[in-house]
């Protein structure tokens, strides 16, 4: 007599074990992703620090700060953009939304604010031909997603555009201050060159017009 209950029980137990294995695999992949992000963040901070030390040195020995900065800002901007992309894609694919991503996002947003301040100063002092854009989005909201596509295509086609993107609902005091300063009330919202604020979906053509791209 075949014991079907036993066969089903064995099948069920093995299935549970396999799925637990999958869960562990997912968690370990999450760990690898988090370490990768931490490495990237550290590297980014290091590069930024190295740039600041270099700046300090030039100021001490005398030299052109603007000549030094020109080749480095593009690198810093690209690194930051890559980091942002990694953070978004890793977080989306993470098995459990853990607190580590909150920490990493906090660090990333702070790094963005610092870099934005740096770029704004350089633009003022060295009269660089660069455009900055603060981009506030709502995660999972379609309009923000659409604004993201527009901004991505714009960045890919224009090297002198530097984007600093922020999750509008993310709870962080400095980010809160930034929102308050620019009076950001809805998403998506963009602040172009510290001057022009646009709330709601801004079309590609409108952005090109504001930024004098054609």
């Amino acid at each position: 007599m075949v014991n079907y209950k036993k066969i089903l029980l064995v099948s069920f137990s093995i299935t549970i074990l396999v799925f637990l294995g999958g869960l562990l695999l997912g968690l370990s992949l999450d760990d690898t992703k988090v370490s990768d992000l931490i490495n990237n963040l550290n590297q980014n901070e290091l590069n930024r620090e190295s740039y600041l030390v270099e700046q300090e040195f030039i100021q001490t020995v005398g030299g052109s700060l603007c000549d030094l900065s020109s080749p480095r800002i593009q690198g810093l901007s690209n690194e930051l953009a890559n980091l942002g992309q990694l953070l978004t894609s890793y977080e989306k694919a993470s098995l459990l939304k853990n607190s580590e991503y909150t920490y990493l996002k906090t660090k990333y947003f702070l790094l963005e604010i610092r870099t934005f301040a740096l770029f704004t100063n350089l633009k003022k002092e060295c009269n660089y031909d660069l455009n900055t854009m603060l981009y506030f989005y709502d995660q999972g909201e379609q309009e923000s997603l659409n604004q993201g596509y527009i901004i991505d295509s714009l960045v890919e086609s224009h090297d002198n555009l530097h984007i600093f993107s922020f999750d509008r609902n993310f709870n962080e005091p400095t980010l809160g201050a930034l929102k308050l300063h620019y009076n950001v009330t809805k998403s998506p919202a963009v602040i172009i060159n510290n001057e022009i604020k646009k709330e709601g979906l801004t079309s590609l053509n409108e952005l090109k017009e504001i930024l004098n791209y054609e």
Partner: peptide, 24 residues
């Protein structure tokens, strides 16, 4: 939204991005 500018969104991830970007 992008019309012909959609071309700029086409990019290929690196192997590392591909592996770590796996959505388990």
């Amino acid at each position: 939204l992008l019309k012909s500018d959609i071309y700029y969104l086409i990019e290929f991830p690196s192997l590392k991005e591909l592996v770590l970007g796996i959505d388990i």
